[in-house]
């Protein structure tokens, strides 16, 4: 038990950290809120105080907004689907004793260490380039017409790139989940006459449910703010403009700070709604 004395000492010692954190978080938030009620367009020299909620209404009613929501959902959903399914498959494979296990595991984790900008550039120029890309060569090798990935399948291409980056994360977490499964449970299921796929479906998958929800939760939070990959590859063209990217365009390209800030606040609110929703699901899963 902490005594009264040690508790107040602890509070005193934590105070600087708490203060820094608060300032760190609150100052940008308050500034964004402040800008969002201004008509602030630096290039045109407009700086009108207090236009009320008009920035919000114009952001919400523009057709770009609904499109961007849809794109965000498809992108996040697609990446989640690929990383979770792929992560489960890879984790199952890596759990098997194989030759050179240590090296294989490091290789699998490697993409996570590559910066998003770098990996997007590598994918764009090395793999997806319609003339010189490796994938183009592969297609030609089989006598097929090379695909111009980033202009024909832009959304899918970005999903692919980001999935490649996040697959290691999902794999790692799911692998630890699989490894924590009591092997006697699998043996019991084997004795009970469950063939391999039944054991996966009824024993391994339920055991991993918790880890899967955690992966989904953490990834969603990070994926909602994908930026570099879009910036580097399509620049938001060809229907790859997510909510985050829309905000960026409003602020930097249109130089409309007020409208962009309003968009930013809306994005924060939406992200929080998603997070609360996901937390509920995870919470339920963690209780069981």
């Amino acid at each position: 038990m902490a005594t009264q004395h040690s508790r107040s000492a602890a509070r005193l010692m934590m105070a600087p950290a708490v203060f820094v954190l608060l300032v760190w978080m609150l100052v940008p938030l308050i500034m964004t809120l402040y800008f969002s009620v201004l008509d602030y367009r630096p290039m045109r020299g407009a700086f009108d105080c207090c236009v009320g909620l008009s920035n919000y209404t114009s952001f919400l009613t523009s057709s770009a907004f609904l499109d961007s929501i849809l794109v965000t959902l498809v992108m996040v959903g697609g990446i989640l689907a690929i990383t979770v399914v792929g992560g489960v498959a890879l984790a199952l494979l890596l759990d098997k004793p194989i030759w050179g296990q240590g090296i294989v595991r490091i290789l699998v984790i490697a993409p996570f260490f590559v910066m998003p900008t770098v990996s997007a550039l590598v994918w764009k120029n090395m793999f997806m380039d319609p003339v010189n890309g490796l994938l183009a060569h592969l297609w030609e090798f089989f006598g097929a017409e090379p695909i111009s990935w980033l202009s024909d399948l832009p959304l899918f291409s970005i999903i692919l790139i980001v999935s490649w980056q996040w697959l290691p994360f999902a794999t790692l977490i799911l692998l630890t989940a699989i490894q924590s499964l009591d092997s006697e449970q699998l043996e019991a299921a084997e004795m009970d006459g469950a063939p391999g796929y039944s054991r996966f479906l009824w024993i391994i998958l339920p055991h991993m449910a918790r880890a899967i929800t955690v992966v989904i939760l953490i990834q969603t939070i990070f994926l909602l703010s994908i930026f570099a990959e879009i910036f580097v590859t399509t620049n938001g063209a060809f229907g790859t403009r997510t909510l985050t990217y829309l905000v960026y365009q409003r602020v930097i390209e249109s130089q409309n700070v007020g409208l962009g800030s309003a968009g930013g606040i809306i994005a924060v609110i939406l992200a929080n709604i998603v997070a609360i929703f996901l937390m509920r699901i995870v919470g339920k899963n963690l209780d069981a």
Binding site: E184, Q185, I203
Partner: peptide, 8 residues
Amino acid sequence: QSYALYPH
């Protein structure tokens, strides 16, 4: 020995 019941 560990019973190996299916916890879920």
